[in-house]
């Protein structure tokens, strides 16, 4: 072995060692994320699991932490999200159908596409300012001011880009043969979309919708900005009724100094996370079914 070879071998061993150290480092980086996730779940469960009870789910908020519950925020969240879906689903899917099936290639189409991409990057609290000014103030006569309707409309605008983008992907994944087959039988464009493309794309669209809903359920800042209440001891009885949602109630409890409320916050978080995890499981199931169907 020449001197040069020995030097190379030596160098090579060092290069491999460097590589191994890097691999360990990169794996450690992933572990940081995973450990933090585990710690977060552990912390919340440790603090809040003992507080979770039927009484907690069915009581109104109270000044006494041990009596307080999440009935009004839970109902508020469900109503807000349902209403939001009623607004956002048709509009979002409609926009996606337009962009995928109808839109000619012109400046307006480009503008809509760039615009949707940009809207997805606007901080959620800015949507809150939009909702506060337009829905809660300018249209106060119709929405009832800082109401359930205002909150749902604001959140509908917030999730619209997510709905549009995911619906477009689902529609794009529909094989073109199916469109051609419908058209060949004399279907008009809308008949083709309604009876062929949409049923095929629906599981994918629903998956995106569920993910958008789970984003909305956890959203706090825009609803605080439009003036959703932090203490509500009644259930909303109309669209114009004032309301609160689960994350705002949690925020309110975290912000209080008494430890009793912190326990309530942790229990509220467990409920919130449980809802989100079930929604995500549903989305995964739907996506799985969708993929199976596309394979056939």
């Amino acid at each position: 072995m020449s001197l040069r070879d020995i030097a190379f071998e030596h160098q090579l061993a060092r290069r491999h060692l460097k590589g191994r150290i890097f691999q360990v480092l990169a794996f450690a980086a992933i572990c940081v994320g995973l450990v933090m996730l585990a710690l977060l779940f552990f912390d919340v469960l440790r603090d809040g699991l003992g507080r979770l009870s039927w009484q907690f789910l069915t009581s109104f908020p109270s000044r006494r932490p041990e009596r307080a519950g999440i009935l009004s925020p839970l109902v508020g969240s469900v109503l807000m999200v349902t209403l939001m879906g009623v607004f956002a689903f048709p509009v979002g899917v409609g926009a996606a159908i337009y962009l995928e099936e109808y839109a000619p290639k012109n400046w307006l189409t480009d503008l809509i596409q760039i615009n949707v991409a940009n809207l997805a990057g606007v901080p959620s609290i800015i949507y809150g300012l939009l909702g506060l000014e337009i829905f809660a103030r300018w249209l106060a006569n119709y929405t009832g001011g800082r109401s359930l309707l205002t909150g749902s409309l604001t959140m509908a605008l917030l999730i619209l880009p997510i709905v549009i983008v995911s619906a477009r992907e689902a529609i794009r994944a529909v094989p073109n043969d199916i469109r051609l087959a419908a058209l060949a039988l004399g279907a008009t464009k809308w008949q083709m979309v309604r009876s062929h493309v949409l049923p095929y794309a629906m599981p994918g669209i629903l998956t995106g919708m569920i993910l958008a809903v789970s984003r909305a359920i956890g959203e706090t800042a825009p609803l605080i900005t439009i003036g959703a209440l932090t203490y509500v001891a009644f259930l909303p009885d109309s669209l114009k009724s004032q309301f609160t949602v689960l994350p705002i109630q949690i925020f309110n409890w975290v912000s209080r100094p008494q430890a009793g409320f912190h326990v309530n916050a942790a229990a509220g978080i467990i409920v919130l996370l449980a809802i989100l995890l079930s929604l995500n499981a549903l989305a995964i199931y739907l996506r799985h079914r969708f993929e199976q169907r596309l394979k056939r």
Partner: peptide, 24 residues
């Protein structure tokens, strides 16, 4: 396996992170 687990982090509501930051 790892990628979806990591992405759970992105789906956790920010108010939960606030709780975690302040109290843990």
């Amino acid at each position: 396996v790892l990628k979806p687990i990591l992405e759970i982090l992105a789906g956790i509501p920010t108010v939960v992170y606030g709780y975690f930051a302040l109290l843990f």
